[in-house]
């Protein structure tokens, strides 16, 4: 059995630009995760002083230093920052709202410059994993994509990361033109396994109409990161091709008006077989992180607690016992 570890994504706590800003709110989230059995957290990149866990400079300002943040995590019973998710195409105030695309070679140098502060931060945090959104949504850049261009910039980011002791995992989300099995395979075939891993996102695969277990088996040697979350829906109408799919599809503004695609595990309507996915990982040499995620949850604490219960009692019998025997690092 391989030695993967569990983490939890913090993104669900940030439900609006003004929420999850105060440090006591961070602390309550850390403690909720810790006592639920999760000993690591995943950060996500953001912008602005209210995204104070999402920008290196704001994180250091709020906690004094990266070490200060790690120390605060430890006091709350969180031993590690597992990973950071970063979308190169998301404009940030700190970068002059630069609009970049992984599919445009002309943007690549600026993408490499933009990732640099994050790699510094990850090094300081003792974190060895950056999860990079591979492409913009299909509705924005079209279904015809220059996979070679995307592969090229991912390899260059992966190389820069590797120099810092960080590995890159490509996140192919449910809005990506590469979201299906063929797209995933084409990107992996186009990239150097030494520089680019796959981030397996179970819910995104289900939404894209794929079987996460089959994808995991097919690419098990390339999996470098896992986002374990559930979905109740398949985008069978290809709503991901809508120009504004991030709002129109994922927030229910149009089409089937599904306002919440992603869920914690344990509901009858869930489509992801978490135990089977964990089984594939367990039979492999996978030794990275399995990050539980529940973005779009209206009740973050509840989702984390229910996911913990599900892992303990249904999907991963070792989860709770492992959590209980560890003492927080001090």
């Amino acid at each position: 059995m391989s030695g993967f570890r569990y983490s939890y994504a913090l993104n669900q706590w940030r439900q609006s630009p003004t929420s999850f800003v105060r440090l006591e709110d961070h602390e309550r989230a850390f403690k909720t995760l810790s006592v639920s059995g999760f000993r690591a957290v995943e950060l996500w990149a953001g912008t602005g002083r209210w995204s104070n866990l999402g920008r290196p400079e704001h994180l250091r300002l709020n906690y004094g230093s990266s070490a200060g943040f790690v120390g605060r995590l430890a006091e709350c019973g969180i031993d590690a920052v597992s990973s950071l998710t970063w979308d190169p195409s998301a404009p940030a105030a700190e970068e002059g709202f630069d609009l970049r695309s992984t599919s445009r070679p002309a943007d690549h140098a600026r993408i490499l410059a933009a990732v640099d502060p994050y790699l510094d931060l990850l090094t300081e945090l003792g974190c060895d994993r950056i999860v990079v959104r591979a492409t913009e949504p299909a509705g924005r850049i079209g279904a015809d994509l220059d996979v070679g261009a995307v592969a090229s910039v991912l390899e260059r980011i992966g190389s820069a990361a590797k120099d810092r002791g960080v590995r890159l995992a490509a996140d192919i989300d449910c809005l990506s033109p590469l979201r299906d099995a063929a797209g995933i395979a084409s990107l992996l075939d186009s990239t150097d396994p030494d520089l680019v891993d796959l981030s397996l996102s179970t819910a995104d695969l289900v939404v894209a109409g794929e079987d996460p277990v089959a994808i995991a088996r097919r690419h098990v040697d390339r999996i470098g990161h896992v986002h374990l979350k559930d979905s109740h829906f398949v985008d069978s109408e290809n709503a991901y091709l809508l120009p504004g799919a991030e709002v129109d599809m994922l927030q229910g503004n149009a089409g089937r008006r599904i306002e919440r695609w992603f869920f914690e595990f344990g509901s009858e309507a869930g489509l992801v077989d978490a135990a089977a996915v964990l089984g594939v990982l367990g039979e492999s040499d996978y030794s990275g992180w399995v990050v539980l995620e529940s973005d779009q949850s209206p009740e973050p604490a509840t989702s984390a607690m229910l996911n913990a219960w599900y892992l303990t009692h249904i999907a991963a019998a070792g989860f709770r016992a492992a959590a209980r025997t560890e003492e927080p690092a001090r």
Binding site: T32, M305, L306, W309
Partner: peptide
């Protein structure tokens, strides 16, 4: 009940 159990 699951939430109560999950946190020990």
């Amino acid at each position: 009940l699951k939430q109560v159990a999950a946190v020990g």
